[in-house]
Design a protein around this nucleic acid. Structure first.
Length: 422
DNA sequence: TCTGGGGTCCTAGGACCC
DNA sequence: TCTGGGGTCCTAGGACCC
């Protein structure tokens, strides 16, 4: 059996941890640049808000219903997530962290008759210890556990725990479950199921395998098997990423090369930092720029350029040099740029890097310098020492974040001070 | 005025080999 | 009229996830 622990309205719940006055109130969290709603509490759903809609379209509903709005605070969410995962690992040993707000955990040693009460206790423990509500789903496969966790959230009588452990329960759950909500059936595939009149997960699982393979290829067959109770989705613990991307939309449109290169230098620095953190080097760097595709009145432009590096590296200084060459080759004056980004790929371990015969860069020197910079920055904060191209922080292109909460748990200046009455 | 960011996996098709 | 067969590797694009 697989057990999934999934935090309820995670980002919004994190905002509530240090704001008990927000319990029972509608809360939404926005994407970068305060663009779209990406997380919302059930109270916010109840007044008609939906995940993914742009803030400016939701303004009316928000004002009428006194919805509390937060810019995203990834520092806070990352830290709260780490605490939830730690508690889960303390209680249940090996866990497979699937995303910032969900993890599969091990329930092998628990007797079936005691399972429900154990899981209810776990849920209470997480809520008491960290302040985040979670739902727990159990099933024969990861996909079924996920179905179960949906019911755990939806049906109040379940107290946040749903266990699908018999054939009857499996069939009943799948009959009540819309096929489009199944893990692995996205918007595109839903169109195909719609076309053939398949509405529930049950009728999808009921089709012959060959039919599924024909219309949905291998990923569809895997989902189909999982729904029938045959596990075939693995969560590979791939600690090393195969590609790393840093990109942002700008708070304002950007037209000149200097601003764009400043953004690219900063994103490259971030990619390099992530590379070094996982002990990797990259063999390729890609730079891309985009105009605002929502503005039909403006002329559109999008381009990208990938440069293979002579020797794989994680050095900020080296990577920035190549990033700028790439940017130079795709920059076209006269456009209103809305977004840029950097992707590093062809990633390998930093030990045993293949050298280049014609390479005359002193990599040892770069490595020592990078190490020294990392050390200083770990003491004085990210980018305390940086490349001049990264700018002075007074940027036109900076993110819009008008509703950000404090970093209660990660910044000493933001730690709450509680005064007791006499 | 205002529309997110960061990933993975699969497949089809092209280039190449003998 | 008629132009092999059997592979591998790579890439771009499309699907999915949170």
């Amino acid at each position: 059996m697989f057990a999934l622990c999934d935090c309820d309205s995670f980002f919004a719940s994190c905002e509530r941890v240090f704001r008990p006055d927000l319990y029972g109130k509608p809360v939404v969290v926005l994407s970068n640049n305060d663009g779209c709603i990406v997380a919302l509490t059930k109270e916010a759903k109840a007044v008609g808000l939906k995940r993914g809609i742009p803030l400016f379209q939701a303004r009316d509903i928000i004002e009428k219903n006194n919805v509390y709005v937060f810019s995203s605070n990834y520092e806070l969410y990352g830290d709260i997530s780490a605490r939830v995962m730690q508690l889960l690992a303390d209680e249940h040993g090996d866990i497979d962290v699937y995303s910032i707000d969900e993890a599969y955990f091990n329930i092998d040693g628990i007797k079936p008759e005691g399972l429900r009460s154990r899981l209810e206790q776990l849920r209470k423990k997480i809520y008491k210890g960290i302040g985040v509500p979670v739902s727990i789903g159990v099933g024969q496969t990861r996909t079924l556990a996920k179905v179960a966790s949906h019911f755990a959230k939806k049906v109040p009588g379940y107290h946040g725990v749903c266990i699908i452990d018999t054939e009857e329960k499996r069939e009943k759950a799948l009959q009540l479950f819309p096929v489009g909500n199944v893990w692995g059936i996205g918007r595109r595939l839903s169109k195909i199921t719609d076309y053939y009149g398949i509405t529930t997960a049950y009728s999808f699982a009921d089709k012959p395998e060959a039919w599924i393979r024909n219309h949905f290829k291998m990923p569809g067959v895997r989902t189909w098997k999982e729904l029938r109770g045959i596990p075939c989705k693995e969560i590979d613990d791939l600690p090393e990423k195969q590609s790393i991307c840093t990109s942002r939309s700008f708070g304002k449109m950007v037209t000149d090369f200097e601003q764009l290169s400043e953004s690219i230098a900063n994103f490259t620095s971030s990619c390099a930092r992530k590379l070094r953190k996982q002990g990797s080097v990259a063999g390729n760097i890609t730079v891309f720029v985009l105009t605002n595709r929502h503005r039909e009145d403006l002329e559109q432009y999008a381009n990208s350029r990938t440069i293979p590096l002579p020797v794989p590296t994680a050095s900020t200084l080296e990577l920035i040099q190549y990033a700028l060459i790439a940017l130079n080759s795709i920059y076209e004056p006269g456009y209103q740029y809305k977004k840029s980004g950097v992707i590093v790929s062809d990633i390998s371990k930093s030990e045993g890097v293949q050298q280049n015969l014609f390479d005359n860069v002193d990599h040892t020197k770069y490595q020592r310098l990078t190490k020294a910079i990392d050390k200083v920055n770990s003491m004085y904060g990210t980018d305390a020492v940086k490349v001049a191209l990264q700018g002075n922080g007074h940027r036109d292109w900076n993110l819009k974040r008008e509703h950000k909460s404090p970093c209660y748990t990660t910044n000493i200046k933001d730690v709450l001070i509680v005064k007791a009455d006499k």
